[in-house]
Design a protein around this nucleic acid. Structure first.
Length: 479
RNA sequence: CGGGACGUAGCGCAGUCUGGUAAGCGCACUUGACUGGGGGUCAAGGGGUCGGAGGUUCAAAUCCUCUCGUCCCGACCA
């Protein structure tokens, strides 16, 4: 039992912070709302990044970089956009020892600069589509920051595409939503509900916003990624026009989509436990650690350690460079070394001591279940591979089962309030209310519409207004 | 931004009401010994000027003012 981590049931927020501290993922920066992502957190982000980046490139996107500073007049060109972002913008008013003629906004997102550039780059239908992504930082001033979930500065990826036809842009929006779902489920082991956002929760300036919603182990919802169909709103604001095949001038159709370091928060709150961080093997910077154990220094350096190195090399050949490390922290006692890796979420621990050496075997210990397996040296690589797969699968299944067990369908508002209070979790219900109704429900229960699920084509009577033919919605309290 | 709690060693805390003989405890850290397969034992050590600034006072961790930050609740929020 970890003694430096608050039990989850005692204080969920404190548990979350303890996991981050014990796992050395992040630390507070001198500026309020900002965080330092420490090497353990950053290497996790790098693996996550790699999976998404691959998926973007597989779907024809290329990376580019647009600047951090945006003329404030750009934000104002799209009415909803400026209204949505103005309150959380940081603005640079002085530079070079002088007051600037036009203040510069630190990007909260880049639709505007990118729109400006696209208008220069697009002339003909032959210039479309443009499929660009950028990895960068953004700044949205937060009143109530929380490590990884809501910080004033965070790292993310923003894809921005422009298309000649509306259908193509809609298709792109949905394709990227599906790419997100795929990577989140197969790599991060995060089951998500994909769906469309209500009008109230839509991205400022978008016609439609689609989302991936995940359930955390406190049963609250976390928006893990969004994909927006921007219609021609930004094309009109930034004059992104092209000549079509008939020689007519048309506005382009644009999309944007993003996932951020918030995903690290999602991994923590989905998989971690009383002993700290648990990382799914597919995103773990270190998939397994080999621990030579002995009270005899000579045996360690001459026998166990060389054996461990050899096994490491065989495993790395199978699992990829640097996937497996040998723990040579012999100044620490075995128990301390166990906890060290436990708290860092390493999926698999491989013990090699006297007992194993004599029988030419190793002991494998799973991070997710604590289950121990002894296996001979020659069968070790294959078994490790299988166990990692099994851990990956187990984490996903466990999270999915948890979500299923905590999702309830209701037919009336009374039932809605009752379920929310007594059981919590996700609530599915047919809903045809207005924006005001949604607001009313929120102020009364603090639950919001997370999305209208993609695969929830069922229609029914609205639980709130009694109207017929209402679409299915997922409600929950959210981060 | 409103309400509440809190900032004393790397972490967790006591001391603050009743100013002085309070810079203290546990863990962690250093050195040594015994140990060593889920956070071991003993011994000897190092480390803080009490979030910051200003004020009251012979004297401030302690009282007053301002300020910065963290956590919780609320408002707001891709």
């Amino acid at each position: 039992m970890a003694r430096n981590i608050t039990p989850r049931e005692k204080d969920y927020s404190q548990w979350y912070l303890d996991v981050i501290r014990a796992g050395e993922l992040a630390d507070y920066a001198p500026v309020r709302g900002c965080m330092v992502i420490r090497p353990n957190g950053y290497s996790l982000w790098e693996v996550i990044q790699r999976h998404f980046d691959e998926a973007f490139k597989d779907t024809g996107h290329v990376n580019a970089y647009f600047p951090l500073l945006i003329p404030s007049s750009f934000l104002e060109k799209e009415a909803d956009h400026v209204e949505g972002f103005a309150p959380e913008c940081a603005v640079v008013t002085h530079a070079g020892g002088e007051e600037l003629e036009e203040p510069l906004v630190v990007r909260p997102t880049s639709e505007t600069v990118i729109g400006h550039m696209y208008s220069k780059w697009v002339q003909s239908w032959r210039d479309l589509p443009i499929l660009i992504n950028q990895w960068c930082n953004v700044m949205r001033w937060e009143k109530r920051p929380r490590l990884f979930l809501r910080t004033s500065e965070f790292l993310w990826q923003e894809g921005h595409t422009a298309h000649a036809a509306k259908e193509e842009a809609v298709e792109e929006t949905l394709r990227m939503l599906e790419v997100y779902r795929e990577v989140m489920e197969t790599r991060l082991a995060l089951p998500v509900v994909t769906g469309e956002k209500s009008e109230a929760e839509r991205f400022p300036g978008a016609d439609n916003t689609y989302t991936c919603e995940a359930m955390m182990t406190d049963m609250k919802a976390l928006q893990a990624g969004t994909s927006h169909f921007l219609g021609q709103n930004f094309a009109k604001a930034f004059d992104i026009t092209f000549q079509n095949k008939d020689g007519e001038r048309e506005y382009a159709w644009t999309t944007s989509w993003g996932v951020s370091t918030r995903l690290i928060g999602a991994i923590i709150m989905t998989h971690s436990d009383k002993d700290g961080l648990v990382i799914p093997p597919e995103v773990a910077p270190v998939k397994a650690v080999i621990m030579p154990i002995s009270d005899d220094e000579k045996a360690l350096s001459e026998t166990f350690e060389p054996e461990a190195m050899e096994l490491r090399d065989r495993l790395n050949a199978l699992l990829g460079k640097r996937s497996v490390k040998v723990d040579t922290q012999y100044h620490m006692r075995p128990g301390d070394r166990f906890f060290y890796h436990l708290q860092r979420g390493v999926p698999l621990r491989i013990e090699l001591g006297k007992k194993e050496y004599e029988s030419q075997s190793v002991r494998l210990v799973r991070r997710d279940t604590g289950e121990k397996t002894d296996v001979s040296w020659d069968r070790a690589p294959e078994t490790v591979r299988q166990l990692l797969e099994s851990i990956q699968k187990n984490l996903y299944t466990r999270a999915l089962e948890f979500r299923k067990a905590n999702t309830h369908h209701v037919k009336s508002y009374e039932e809605f309030k009752n379920v929310l209070e007594t059981r919590g979790g996700f609530i599915t219900a047919h809903f045809a209310g207005t924006r005001e109704d949604e607001k009313e429900i929120k102020s009364e229960t603090t639950a919001t519409i997370r999305c209208y699920p993609m695969n929830g084509q069922s229609r029914g009577t609205c639980f709130y207004t009694g109207k017929d033919d209402a679409p299915l919605a997922v409600f929950a309290k959210a981060y």
